[in-house]
């Protein structure tokens, strides 16, 4: 392990590579995605509840950015990570690494598009019409939900990349 070529000055601490940290990362990713979903659902339920005095309501358009973010997350985490490195000879045959990178690019585009869509819904639907604060929360929740989906993707990605180190340790 010491002979590997490192890119950064600080190496990842040893405890972060354990199975425990990896599993905790996957659980945390599920929790973050759940938080994102329920924050958006909260906006929808609050919109129809008696507390919403304004005539601003959550429609399908408000859900669209979240759907795109989730689609991006699904695509990103479905790609087999080991196929990405074109260095290994056995995997780079017939352009698998190239295809994996294209699919990954589509996934990140969907994720970023979802986040941009969340901000767009917030600005065009809530800031520009000048919605008062308790109803404004629905737009803020939209942005927060899409950001949480992005965070969940990052957590899941990082904890899945720990897997290689773990498998390597076990093989030795």
């Amino acid at each position: 392990m010491d002979t590997e070529e490192r890119l950064f000055k600080f190496r990842m601490p040893q405890w972060l590579n354990s199975v425990w940290a990896r599993n905790a990362g996957v659980y945390a990713a599920g929790g973050l995605f759940s938080a994102a979903f329920y924050i958006l659902l909260d906006a929808a339920v609050w919109s129809k509840s008696a507390r919403n005095a304004s005539d601003v309501h959550v429609t399908f358009v408000d859900w669209l950015p979240f759907i795109f973010s989730s689609l991006g997350m699904l695509i990103i985490n479905s790609v087999e990570k080991t196929r990405l490195s074109g260095d290994s000879f056995s995997y780079s045959g017939s352009g698998v690494a190239w295809k994996a990178r294209v699919v990954l690019f589509l996934g990140f585009a969907a994720l970023a598009g979802g986040m941009a869509g969340g901000v767009t819904v917030f600005v065009l639907g809530f800031v520009v019409p000048g919605v008062a604060w308790p109803a404004m929360g629905m737009g803020v929740e939209n942005v927060v939900a899409n950001a949480l989906v992005g965070l969940s993707t990052v957590v899941l990605w990082v904890s899945q990349n720990m897997e290689d180190e773990y498998a390597y340790n076990l093989a030795l």
Binding site: V26, Y27, A29, G30, G31, S34, F37, Y38, L156
Partner: peptide, 18 residues
């Protein structure tokens, strides 16, 4: 499976707040 379990656990906390 772990992802879905994490989802359900946070759902249990988020539902009363919602």
């Amino acid at each position: 499976g772990r992802f879905c379990t994490g989802f359900l656990v946070v759902m249990g906390l988020a539902l009363p707040v919602l």
